[in-house]
């Protein structure tokens, strides 16, 4: 069994502030492994523990992104791959998914690809599904749990409105995972951190993954960001503290005034 987990290094948005122009104020903001990806990695390592699966981790980013790969190796991943080159810079989700899918083909074989549901810096939730699309394999998104049923079947618990849906799927498949609120993300001990220094971490350029550079970076990205702005703050709501009947009558009156009801 071979599992590939896609990871992204992101600014810790719990500590991020915005500039007036809507861009991120990054000074002094530490970078972390995207929490959903961290959870996906934890699930992959659970499967490894049970089945002896090989876990390979993949990321695209500046050389600094090797930090999250090293963290993954310390947590138990076997091999790490970093796509790092100027040609990748500025890629949107489509170009990123193209690059990652090329890398997946190069890393193959694989039975399972795990991605975080979305990155906390962009919040698009597009890259995972786009990788599946470009690899032409099935996908299940928004999962909170996965369990290997047999050698080539997997049960995925998908978060849906009002509950969960359990889906059975045959491998290979791409799953995107979202962290359940009570899940404590694992961190490695000192010895594992030290030993991870010896594990293989490869840096790849577009050449290594035989990628078409015209499909990478800003020029290869169909998305154009026109403007980023914070949504206008909501007006303070009106609170009614009358009796139930009076409140109901008042609400109906307000709705009529706004022509919501006749």
């Amino acid at each position: 069994m071979d599992i590939i987990v896609c990871l992204k290094q992101v600014p810790n948005t719990a500590k991020v502030k915005m500039n007036q122009d809507g861009t991120l104020l990054r000074a002094g903001v530490p970078s972390i492994l995207n929490p959903c990806d961290h959870f996906a990695l934890a699930k992959a390592l659970e499967i490894k523990k049970k089945t002896g699966a090989k876990v390979k981790v993949l990321s695209m980013g500046p050389s600094q992104a090797a930090e999250v790969l090293r963290l993954a190796l310390a947590l138990g991943a076997d091999e790490a791959y970093l796509l790092c080159d100027k040609a990748f810079a500025g890629s949107d989700t489509w170009a990123t998914a193209y690059a990652l899918s090329r890398a997946v083909k190069k890393i193959a074989p694989f039975n399972l690809i795990l991605c975080g549901q979305m990155a906390i810096d962009g919040d698009t939730a597009q890259t995972g599904p786009e990788i599946a699309g470009q690899l032409n394999i099935p996908q299940i998104t928004f999962c909170t749990d996965i369990e290997l049923k047999q050698k080539d079947t997997l049960l995925a618990t998908k978060l849906i409105e009002g509950g969960h849906q359990i889906l059975e799927v045959s491998l290979p498949v791409l799953i995107t995972l979202t962290t359940p609120h009570n899940f404590a993300l694992p961190y490695p001990n000192f010895k594992a951190i030290f030993e991870a220094q010896q594990k293989p971490l490869f840096t790849w350029t577009p050449n290594d993954i035989e990628a078409d550079v015209s499909k990478l970076g800003i020029s290869g990205s169909p998305t154009r960001v026109v403007k980023i702005y914070p949504p206008a703050p909501k007006q303070k709501g009106q609170v009614l503290t009358l009796s139930a009947e009076e409140t109901a009558a008042k609400i109906v009156k307000i709705l009529q005034e706004h022509k919501v009801v006749k």
């Binding site: 930090e67 310390a74 490695p188």
Partner: peptide, 23 residues
């Protein structure tokens, strides 16, 4: 003999921080 590198030092500090936060 292999030495602990700068990245490992950073990860150790982070692990310690998370451990303290949890425990």
């Amino acid at each position: 003999m292999q030495k602990i590198d700068a990245l490992s030092r950073k990860l150790m500090a982070e692990s310690l921080r998370h451990y303290a936060k949890e425990n």
